[in-house]
Amino acid sequence: MKKLFYVLVLGALLGSACSEGETVKGDQFFEQGKYAEAIEAYNEHLKLKPKHVKSIYNRGRAFEELGQYEKALADFNTVIELDPSNANAYMSIGQDFYRKGEYASAVLSYEQALQHSPDNAQALFLKGRALHQQGDFENALSAYNASISTDKSFGQPYMFRGALYLSLNRKKQACSDLNKALSLGVKEAQDPINKYCK
């Protein structure tokens, strides 16, 4: 009886290790840009662990990279059902709204992410970007400022705040932000620098 118990425990451990290997393999495929292969690996892992939140979320991201937005959204919503405090899933849902031009809904999704992760520089930036698209410059500026205050090494909010300053005819502040974004690796800042800051 004792021997049978150890055989069963060993089998469970090996099954778990093989299963974890699939999710690691999925992550590796994702990093290599092999999104279809990543999805297959996540599917294999989810056969054994159907509620593994990280695999469901990462599979959604892989679907998103392949342009399979409905499948991606289904996975992100499943993540929220399983883990209602998952800020990444709310941000990804927000990105889906943003992609469709539904900026008010995107803002609400980013705010939900921020309820669970208030110091999330990425969520603050994304919220600012959606507000910016709505023409709500004052609140967009506040969101960009909050994102920068949270993570001064994150270049995107400098870039977008710079663009906002340009639209408000605040050229000196705009150029300062655009140059900061460029120094932080945001190469897209070079064109507006060439156009407005020379």
Rank of each mutant, 00 (worst) to 15 (best):
N145L: 11
I56A: 06
Y165G: 03
L8T: 06
K2E: 15
A72V: 06
K152Y: 09
Y196K: 06
Y90T: 06
S117K: 09
A181K: 02
A87T: 06
T150D: 08
H45I: 04
H132T: 06
A130N: 00
Y6P: 02
I93P: 00
E188I: 11
K47S: 09
E64D: 15
E188K: 14
G135M: 05
D75K: 02
F63R: 05
P50L: 12
A12M: 15
V53H: 03
S183E: 11
P50C: 08
N194R: 12
N169E: 14
I39R: 01
Y103K: 00
K100C: 00
A62F: 03
Y6I: 11
L14E: 05
L82D: 07
E20K: 12
I56M: 04
G185S: 04
N86S: 11
Q32V: 11
L164K: 02
F160L: 12
N179Y: 10
K25A: 14
V24T: 15
K54C: 09
Q122C: 10
S16I: 14
L178T: 01
N139Y: 06
G21P: 00
I193A: 01
T150A: 15
K51Y: 12
A74W: 07
N145T: 14
R59N: 02
K2V: 15
G128Q: 02
L182W: 03
L73M: 09
H116G: 02
G94Q: 01
K51C: 11
G11E: 05
G67F: 00
A163Y: 10
S147K: 01
N145D: 15
E37Q: 11
Y35G: 03
A74N: 14
G26H: 03
K127Y: 07
G21M: 02
G26T: 03
